[in-house]
Computed example of a mutant assay.
Amino acid sequence: MTNDRRVLVHPDNTALFGSVAARFITKTVDLLDDLGTANIVLTGGRAGTGVMSAINESSARDSVDWSRVHFWWGDERFVPAGHEDRNDVGARAALLDHIPVPAENIHPFPASDEVADLDEAVAVYTAELAKFAMDGNEVPRFDITFLGVGPDGHIASLFPDRPEVAVKDVPVVAVRDAPKPPPLRLSLTRPVLNGSDRIWLVLSGADKAAALGLGMAGASFHEVPVAGIKGRKRTVFFVDQDAAAEVPESLISPSY
């Protein structure tokens, strides 16, 4: 299985989010033609929500047969359902509430008022992943996984120098005392993320430049988690000019 790791630079957020949205729609149509269904892993934050809004605003949005697309999340904040901190709340407002995707195709992590505790939430989401897995796998075939990157290099809720970033034997991990609020979180583990066919990382802002530079330079994934992320087929960093400030010119692709 070949793997390309590319950095694509855009002049500003509008161009960045619009470009990712256009590529997502085109690729999803292709996936549905080839595979019949598509499994997409979403992220939160400024970039994740920006891309989903751009997908919703695209004139090509309705070219996708959303009834055959399943949505998952790479991580979630363990707070009550409907809380503004939850990634699924932002995703619904930006995109999911505006497209004809069946409710059963949306797979959010459990909320804190839906289960007894964080450990039960891990068990519930692990079971949900297994229910849609094939060929004896623990998780579904993830076709496109969106990830944001924090200024510290964290991805999903896998933070630097924390034990969760090294977990390999389970698909979902509980995060307690996270270094950024809220302290309780749920996250897919690094092997599950890296099992995705395509990982699309979307970064904007000068505060992401150092993390991106270290990640591309081969830093330890324990210290800079994004350095340990690589999709099975392709890994693309979609960035704006500010975030690309510390990426060597030789690593920047002129086209996709």
Rank of each mutant, 00 (worst) to 15 (best):
S63R: 15
T145C: 14
G148R: 07
P80I: 06
D240Q: 05
T126W: 10
P181Y: 08
F17R: 04
F142Y: 04
F142S: 02
A103I: 03
A206S: 14
F221P: 09
L31S: 04
A219N: 04
V124R: 14
A178P: 10
S187K: 10
F142G: 04
K180D: 12
A245V: 12
A47Q: 11
H222G: 00
H98N: 12
R23Q: 07
R232G: 02
L184Y: 12
P163K: 07
A81W: 14
A210M: 11
R23S: 07
P171D: 01
E164C: 07
A174L: 08
S220P: 07
R162P: 05
G48S: 10
F221G: 00
M1K: 13
N56C: 13
T49C: 07
F238G: 01
H154V: 05
S59N: 13
G195M: 08
G48E: 06
T235M: 08
L16C: 03
R234E: 15
L96F: 10
A219W: 05
E249N: 09
A227H: 08
K27E: 13
V149R: 04
A127G: 10
V41M: 14
T49V: 15
G18D: 01
I144E: 02
P191F: 08
A209H: 11
A47E: 13
A22F: 03
A166S: 14
D88G: 00
P179S: 12
I252V: 15
G195W: 06
I25P: 01
R141W: 07
